[in-house]
Simulated assay, not measured.
Amino acid sequence: MNNDLLNELLAQEDEIQLSYFNNQTAWELGSAIKLAAEKISASVAIEVYAFEHVLFSYFMPGTNKDNHEWVRRKRQTVMRFGHSSYYTGQYNASKNRDFEAQPHIDAKEYCAHGGSFPIRIKNSGIIGTVTVSGLPQEIDHQLAIGALRELLVNQN
């Protein structure tokens, strides 16, 4: 597995830390992902989760119950392990192991497929996640971090 990719994913987590986050920010973040998905004619499920609540949830036409489960499992992975679901999957692949097959992982509750990214507040840590499901994991991940970066620019 490519250590450059792992380092890049960790660098994204260091880079993308917000100054503040609230319900309005969650709405802006989720809406930005919806617009980005529409621009590429993609159908995705979007969730913004913070402060132990789902603050934004939108399932575009063409999504289904499976997307809901993917979103939940990706979010659970980030909240438990503290890294993006994409990083978690790539890290485990670099160790030649299947994340979901490990004895301490319940595959009904967790998955290590890209698309969920931690929402961090500078000097405070993780307060939630933004999750996208419906496209290949790299694209789900890019939609999430693209919208977070846009939000970060607007906060500075």
Rank of each mutant, 00 (worst) to 15 (best):
N2M: 06
D4K: 12
L5V: 13
L5T: 14
L6R: 11
N7L: 05
N7V: 03
E8N: 11
E8R: 09
E8M: 13
L9I: 09
L10W: 10
A11L: 15
E15D: 12
E15K: 15
Q17N: 15
Y20N: 14
F21G: 04
F21P: 01
A26W: 04
W27K: 05
W27M: 09
E28C: 10
L29H: 00
L29C: 09
G30M: 05
A32P: 01
A32Q: 04
A32F: 03
A32R: 02
A32Y: 08
K34Q: 09
L35D: 11
A36N: 08
A36R: 07
A36K: 11
E38K: 14
I40Q: 12
S43N: 01
V44E: 02
A45P: 00
E47H: 03
V48M: 06
V48S: 03
Y49G: 01
F51H: 11
E52M: 08
E52K: 13
H53V: 10
S57V: 14
S57I: 14
Y58P: 05
F59Q: 08
M60Y: 01
M60D: 01
G62F: 04
G62I: 04
G62A: 07
T63I: 03
T63W: 09
N64L: 06
K65A: 12
D66P: 07
D66M: 15
D66I: 15
N67E: 09
N67K: 11
E69Q: 13
V71W: 05
R73V: 09
K74D: 00
R75Y: 05
R75L: 06
R75M: 10
T77S: 00
V78T: 11
V78Q: 10
M79Y: 00
F81Y: 12
G82M: 04
G82F: 10
G82N: 01
H83I: 03
H83E: 00
S85A: 07
S85N: 07
Y86I: 04
Y86D: 00
Y86S: 05
T88M: 13
G89W: 05
Q90I: 07
Y91A: 10
Y91D: 06
S94F: 15
N96C: 12
N96I: 10
R97S: 02
F99N: 08
F99D: 00
F99W: 02
Q102D: 08
Q102K: 04
H104D: 14
D106M: 08
A107H: 08
K108I: 10
K108M: 14
K108D: 11
K108A: 13
C111S: 02
C111I: 09
C111Y: 03
H113T: 15
H113S: 10
G115S: 12
G115L: 08
I119M: 02
K122F: 12
K122R: 13
I126Q: 08
I126E: 01
I126L: 12
G128Q: 06
T129S: 09
V130Y: 02
V130R: 04
T131P: 01
V132K: 07
S133D: 10
G134V: 06
L135A: 07
L135I: 11
P136A: 09
P136R: 08
Q137L: 14
D140R: 05
L143P: 04
A144H: 05
G146H: 07
A147I: 07
A147Q: 02
L148Y: 00
R149E: 02
R149K: 14
L152W: 00
V153K: 13
N154T: 04
N154H: 06
Q155T: 01
